[in-house]
Amino acid sequence: MALNLKIALAGEGGQGVQSVAEILTEAAYHAGYQPLYIPNFGVEQRGGVSVAFVQISEAPVSAPKFTTGDIVVALSHRAVERARQYVGPETLLVFDASLADDVRRVYGEGQKSLAVPALAIAKEGLHPRVFNVIILGVLVGVTGFLERRDVEQALERQFGHKFAQDPSLKELNYRALERGYLLGSERLEVGNRI
């Protein structure tokens, strides 16, 4: 069956879930797919949980939002709860490893999930600001439909002006992407299933 991937990302404002969605769909677009990305927005976005809806398909996507994701990413306490509505029995729940207790409380033990120690990696090995790029890398790894090159080019389009000012930033982002990618590609099950 043709690729038709639905990903919801939920996090706090400032965690960069919208950037992840934007870069992922940019990369998919340049790789020849028909992505559709829509953020939640509005009165609620100020101070609420930020949610990004991403769909990547080979044919134009039919509805901008969906009820159940193939992958749902939750990056904060509130996001674990907020994302509940998009998680079905088949959904892979990706979450930061620090939220394991919340995930267990909200989803029980049976949920198919992937804990990613992104916060810890970002703080200890890299830099807190590339936390979301690790998540991006995990999604690229888990889904397996994109070449890393596509994603690097999308990063370049997004942050090129910042990379030009500070070349070490580019290196930092690429390392974050790589770390996430390795974590994700170990669980390339979503891509395999599709």
Partner: peptide, 10 residues
């Protein structure tokens, strides 16, 4: 509509 306003697609 707001969806069409805010969504990105090719």
């Amino acid at each position: 509509d707001g969806y069409q306003s805010k969504m990105r697609e090719p």
